[in-house]
Simulated scan of single mutants.
Amino acid sequence: MILKKYYIYGALCLAVYSCASRQEINYMKDIENIALDNSIKNSRSTLQPGDQLVIRVSAKDLDVVKPFNQNYSSTATVAQYSIASGNTQFQPVPTSGPTYVVDTDGNIDFPQIGLVDTKGENLETLKTKLAGLISTYVKSPVVDVKLINFKVSVLGEVAKPGTYVIPDGNTTLLQTLGLAGDLTAFGVRNNILIIRNVDGKFSQQRVDITSAQFINSPYYYLKQNDMIYVQPNTVKEKSARVDPNTGLYISVASVIASIALGVLALTRN
């Protein structure tokens, strides 16, 4: 009888151990109550040192803008989208035009104009700025600026952790998590860490994607070199600390207990 009680107790413990704690897995439950005004203001990333920009200048007379398109190459190809390490799919996107790298002081060296300060500028404002500078020499110039090395990293409890290059330099937290295959069942959805480096200053923010409030956060739209970390829940942390053979030990113990109960029943008969 005592052995039977121990067996029942062990079975109950095993059942409790195998049950994962409940957690909220729905995203943005209160989306209908959230105004999206602030998210639009946060959608533009300011340029950072190390950014690679393809800048093309055009006008009605293309010969007039040739001095502003030095080192032009019509065959250049840039891999603007990548899959995380362990996956081999790449989608090279043809691009043409000279490439400029933002230096450590936040400048680019532009033909005929010289150093152009990009600090505090995003792609749209830099287009306007360059068009204004070039209009001194060319009537109604059209400037196109593309950021070709915008990348973010996703680590932790996602299906495909890795570093992702974003084609247009504009992505949200949810879009990037989608690229990483979404969170696993063990990922904590209400405490995602985002680490950001802007102008050499690091900041961090915890984000709850089960609430739509984060749409108006400065961390909804990601910026260059952002790092996202999805921490595991307590069930995953506990399982990582448990001997990997624990399941085997429990199974063996259960078999032994069953045999012992069988023997005990036979001896009673």
Rank of each mutant, 00 (worst) to 15 (best):
173 L>E: 03
173 L>M: 00
174 L>A: 12
175 Q>E: 07
175 Q>R: 10
175 Q>V: 00
175 Q>Y: 07
175 Q>L: 04
177 L>G: 02
177 L>N: 08
178 G>A: 14
178 G>S: 15
179 L>W: 13
180 A>K: 10
180 A>N: 02
180 A>D: 06
181 G>V: 09
181 G>W: 00
181 G>F: 01
182 D>S: 13
182 D>F: 11
183 L>I: 08
183 L>R: 05
183 L>T: 14
183 L>G: 05
184 T>I: 07
184 T>L: 09
184 T>W: 01
185 A>D: 08
185 A>V: 09
185 A>S: 11
186 F>V: 10
186 F>C: 05
186 F>M: 13
187 G>Q: 05
187 G>C: 10
187 G>A: 07
187 G>M: 05
188 V>T: 13
188 V>G: 01
190 N>A: 05
191 N>P: 00
191 N>V: 04
192 I>P: 00
192 I>T: 04
193 L>T: 07
193 L>C: 00
194 I>T: 01
194 I>H: 01
195 I>C: 06
195 I>F: 04
195 I>N: 07
196 R>V: 01
196 R>G: 02
196 R>Q: 02
197 N>R: 07
197 N>C: 03
197 N>G: 05
197 N>T: 09
198 V>P: 03
198 V>A: 11
199 D>A: 13
199 D>H: 11
199 D>Q: 15
200 G>W: 09
200 G>T: 03
200 G>A: 07
201 K>E: 12
202 F>A: 15
202 F>K: 10
203 S>V: 11
204 Q>T: 14
204 Q>V: 10
205 Q>V: 11
205 Q>Y: 14
206 R>Q: 11
207 V>E: 04
207 V>I: 15
209 I>K: 01
210 T>Q: 03
210 T>I: 09
210 T>C: 04
210 T>M: 05
211 S>K: 14
211 S>G: 06
211 S>Q: 12
212 A>E: 03
213 Q>L: 13
213 Q>A: 15
213 Q>E: 12
213 Q>I: 12
213 Q>S: 12
214 F>E: 03
214 F>K: 00
